[in-house]
Every structure is written in structure tokens, then in C-alpha cells.
């Protein structure tokens, strides 16, 4: 029964992939070897599409793999399989936190966890910045020569409108995402001619 197997495989992925969407990839690659549902090059394509569509990366990839394997029902089953362990584990932790949040040890642990979490978020922002502000085809190193001036100009503009101008500061972040997509297309930020 393909659906049971799909659910089981993605349940396992959801249970053991710790640390977000990227952590699911080794499991998917293993799945390709073991089940023959899809090839590795198909998986690379699916990951690329998942990165460039709305929604969390790990969820998109699970949906896509499920779809390729068994159509729309497969997409639903794979996604449910992926999220079921998270739901169970987080509900248990949330219950635990409600009871122990004001415990002096738990409270002190969170005082150290908050700057840690913020540091991890900053690091992820910087790693996105590496690919957003530097030409990757100019080699691995982030030399000043590989800096994309058009990206820097867009970034400065966005920084000003999202932080310093009261009228535009209040706009929803999706406005700036859409704006940046248009700018990216008009000025061919990806370095690929449109026609």
C-alpha cells in the first residue's frame, strides 16, 4: 500500500530531521535510494522548485515528493506524515512548558536560549546575504570584486523604507518581497537575460 508506505517514510523524516527544512534532505536522498520512487536528479529539481515557491522548504519538498510518487493524495499523505511527529512532540513540550515555565532552572535556560536563537537567526541571514550580495560564479571566496552593486543599492533602499520612513515602515513585509521580485526581474538580478 503506497500511501501507508509514504506516510511511514515521511513520518520517519519528520521524526529524525532536527533543525528545519534543510535537515530533511539527507533523509529524502536516502528515500530515493531505498524506494526508487524518484531519482536523485529529480530530487534536486524538486528541492529547487520548493525553494522558489511560497511555503516552508521542508513542507514543500515533502508535498512535491508525495505528488510525484502518488498524485494529489500522495502529496497530502506525505505532508501529513512529515508534520505528525512535530505536532505530537511540540504539544507535549508545550504542555510541559506551561507547567514548568516559571521554574527557576527553566527560566534561566531560556535567558541563555534567547540570545542563542537570535544569534542563529542572524547567522542564517548572513548566509542568505552571501548569495544575495556576491556573484557565486566568481569563485567560492567572497571578494569585494564579486559584490553585486545592484543588490547593495536595493538593500540600502529597503533598509531606508522599512526602518526610517514612518509612512512606508508600516507596510506589510510581503509588499517589499513583491517589490524586490519585480526589481529582480526588471534589472535581471539573477544575471539571466529575460528574452
Amino acid at each position: 500500500m503506497i500511501f501507508l508506505r509514504l506516510f511511514y517514510e515521511f513520518f520517519k523524516t519528520g521524526l529524525f530531521a532536527i533543525g528545519g527544512g534543510l535537515a530533511t534532505f539527507p533523509f529524502l536522498s536516502d528515500m530515493a535510494d531505498k524506494t526508487g520512487w524518484f531519482t536523485h536528479s529529480q530530487l534536486m529539481d524538486m528541492i529547487a522548485v520548493s525553494e522558489s515557491t511560497p511555503g516552508p522548504l521542508g513542507v514543500n519538498t515533502a508535498t512535491y515528493v508525495g505528488f510525484v510518487t502518488a498524485g494529489i493524495p500522495g502529496a497530502v499523505v506525505a505532508t501529513l506524515g512529515l508534520i505528525t511527529p512535530s505536532i505530537i512532540i511540540i504539544l507535549i513540550i508545550a504542555g510541559f512548558l506551561k507547567a514548568f515555565r516559571h521554574n527557576v532552572y527553566v527560566d534561566s535556560a531560556f535567558k541563555c536560549l534567547r540570545p542563542t536563537s537570535t544569534g542563529l537567526i542572524a547567522a542564517s541571514g548572513l548566509s542568505v546575504a552571501a548569495s544575495a550580495f556576491f556573484r557565486t560564479d566568481a569563485g567560492e571566496s567572497l571578494s569585494p570584486g564579486a559584490l553585486r552593486p545592484e543588490s547593495v543599492i536595493l538593500a540600502i533602499f529597503l533598509l531606508i523604507v522599512t526602518r526610517f520612513i514612518p509612512q512606508t515602515k508600516k507596510l506589510h513585509p510581503i509588499v517589499w518581497i513583491a517589490f524586490s521580485a519585480v526589481v529582480g526581474v526588471v534589472f535581471t538580478f539573477g544575471g539571466v537575460p529575460m528574452f
Binding site: 542568505v128 544575495a132 517589499w176 518581497i177 524586490s180 529582480g184 538580478f189
Partner: peptide, 16 residues
């Protein structure tokens, strides 16, 4: 490809 090169710049600023 071009749209996402633009979106990546925006995501950096939003995360900042």
C-alpha cells in the same frame, strides 16, 4: 531566477 535573486536581497533585510 531573476525574481528570486531580488527576493533574496529583501529576505536579508527583513531578517536583519
Amino acid at each position: 531566477i531573476n525574481a528570486f535573486a531580488g527576493i533574496r536581497v529583501c529576505v536579508c533585510i527583513l531578517i536583519f
